[in-house]
């Protein structure tokens, strides 16, 4: 395997992705990601110099809304999905 994924990398990606992996999962993740990156490295065989990165397939641009209020209040329905709510707000663990 050409790509060796370190514990630090897996921990770092865990912080970015907000995933807490068990020791076992970490080992598996290191293997999986290493293999995937080996496979992805195949892309290096291609000469892509001078090729513009393509995010959108079609050259569509300028899709806009007019600045007009269209939405009403649907708070009760939306909050019904919240795991915890209080006084019309989404309740979360203290952030400060």
């Amino acid at each position: 395997m050409a790509n060796i994924i370190s514990d630090e990398t897996i921990d770092y990606v865990g912080i970015l992705a907000k995933l807490d992996l068990s020791a076992e999962e970490k080992e598996q993740a290191k293997k999986d990601m290493g293999r995937m990156l080996d496979y992805i490295d195949k892309l290096n065989e291609l000469d892509v110099s001078g090729v513009e990165p393509m995010s959108h397939v079609f050259p569509v641009h300028n899709v806009f809304r007019e600045d007009v209020v269209t939405n009403g209040d649907d708070r009760e329905n939306m909050l019904a999905n919240a795991p915890e709510q209080k006084q019309g707000q989404y309740q979360v663990p203290k952030t400060v």
């Binding site: 707000q89 989404y90 309740q91 663990p93 952030t95 400060v96």
Partner: peptide, 11 residues
């Protein structure tokens, strides 16, 4: 921040 309940509320 709701100090009584030790939580934060999102609006």
């Amino acid at each position: 921040h709701d100090d009584w309940e030790d939580c934060s509320l999102v609006d």
